[in-house]
Design a protein around this nucleic acid. Sequence first.
DNA 1: TAAATGTGTGTAAACGTTTACACATGGAAA
DNA 2: TTTCCATGTGTAAACGTTTACACACATTTA
Lengths: 332, 332
Amino acid sequence: MSLSIKDVALRAGCSIATVSRVLAGKGYIGGDTRQKVEEAVKALGYRPNRVARSLRAAKSRVIGLILSDICNPFFSEISRAVEHVAIRHGYSVLICNADEDPAKEAHYLQLMEEEKVAGILLSPTRSIAKALDFSKFPPLALFDRKFPKAQMDSVVIDNEDAAFRLTRTLIEGGYRNIAGVFGAKSYTAGVRIAGFKAAFEGVEDRMQGVHQAPAFEVEGRRLMQEILELRPAVDAVLCSSALLATGAYQALRERGLRMPDQMGFACFDDPPWAGFVDPSVTVIRQPASAIGEAAAELLMKRIADPTRVVSEIVLQGELIERGSSRRGGGVY
Amino acid sequence: MSLSIKDVALRAGCSIATVSRVLAGKGYIGGDTRQKVEEAVKALGYRPNRVARSLRAAKSRVIGLILSDICNPFFSEISRAVEHVAIRHGYSVLICNADEDPAKEAHYLQLMEEEKVAGILLSPTRSIAKALDFSKFPPLALFDRKFPKAQMDSVVIDNEDAAFRLTRTLIEGGYRNIAGVFGAKSYTAGVRIAGFKAAFEGVEDRMQGVHQAPAFEVEGRRLMQEILELRPAVDAVLCSSALLATGAYQALRERGLRMPDQMGFACFDDPPWAGFVDPSVTVIRQPASAIGEAAAELLMKRIADPTRVVSEIVLQGELIERGSSRRGGGVY
DNA sequence: TAAATGTGTGTAAACGTTTACACATGGAAA
DNA sequence: TTTCCATGTGTAAACGTTTACACACATTTA
């Protein structure tokens, strides 16, 4: 059996209420009482029971983080940032992997509620929006993806603009048949597709179609193979995430296609290999840490003051132009 | 206020004990009572309060996972596997990032105890072993790294053998001045260094020293620059992790060193870029998912039966020989 | 027929906190 | 002197569960 506040009270010669007050630093406490309690705490090595605290307070000092895929470096960087902020505020982080599956996502949301987390950080799939009644949930902040019109704290990058710029880079790089590979389930994908399409204004004939699949490496590979098969004219590809890009790049390499001449390439996120391969790959670098940090801070504020005005933070992606997106003149 | 078992009892017209029994599926329950309770649960949308459960049971349905770095793909793959196993057993996962810092690690261990987690999964830094009295902790299972002699459930790969084989590959690839880059704080590093050294039996003069630093990308880069500076004769490098390798590879590339002729290269883990770069990189692939899964299963069993016999599982790393480790004859 | 066993349900205590309330003391203001 | 407020401490209830114990009734066993 572990120690309780009772043991401390016994040793310090006071009531449990007094011990609690000393620990919480609230109310009036006599100087020598405080001393005796602190002494007892130290001597016994007492540590408060967070579960009991949580029950009493009706909410825990834990925040929930629901990710679509923790193996996606973009999300692992986010979770790292979230965790830092949380710890700084005295919270810990319950992480769940939704695997891009709306059913799992809904299930985890339930779980979080049962665990009485103080707040939830979520990067929602598209379908979840209608399925749930969020008014009954703990404070919620969205990151990376958001609901089209819901009033909710969120941190995203300007995906439409980023996709637009990345696409323009390929167009200006001299490619004439550009295909896009996007995620299937997310709000983000939709917005990026819009940016992608918008970039073709005036050169509509250069767009070679939009392809979608769940954002996993194998899917990127499969999709790329399919594109190569179905649309032999394609001479450039834009990928909507590092994972899709990794798979797509694999497929390209297996075909032995030379970049940047035979094939142009650009993607979202900046995986380590993007800088290593030859030619190196043009990317939109997403400020993952900043996103995670901002979202977590937002959530902390919302927890502290649930009536607070809703804020939607939009960050900018950084275009890093490298050798894979310009025909002829290798930049790198 | 959220619903409690009381509300269900009221609606079903029975006592809270009965509701609890129906929910737990324990004890004798009359057919129509069961029906009425289930009906009430559904109608009200009642979900049990896990915090209260945890308090009563003196432990929660949460397991703690303490990682040295969630951004390390090796560890994110592990956490994904752990989470799957946990969920399957009705547990959720509290993830903490120790950042290779023993102090943080100790702090998180404390936190886990306060949260009354049912068990802890840990990849310990070397220094933690003495600092803590593990007898007072919840069930603990170790992965990736273990304590030299402690009796504790653990899952590791045969690091000595893996390092040995990887080093032999470089030696047999024709390199004459081989340096090693290893992590600084872990048990793993020590074992791998042993394997590295053992591989030079008979050709001791080919070993060009062992370098150590915390396992981050920037450190790998720094260390590699240092080696290039201090030991110009070095013609091959072995890196002990993907992160160190990524940094080291960067440094090599910045120097414009051609592989595999001017420089041989091999590393632990199989990051995506290892297959992309030219020549592609020879690696030891660690079965991260298998490690995570096995460790989590071990922990589940330990939770179910604390008196269970201790098991130490050793998996094998898979040597993937590619072009970066053989002089002259490009394999790929 | 009496005792034993099986089935179904309720009462109340316990888990470890926090906190409203009550009470006691001392000094300052009236 | 009385009243009032500030200070310090204790008692007990509450948070939402689980479960030991008690009880009631029905059926089986001797």
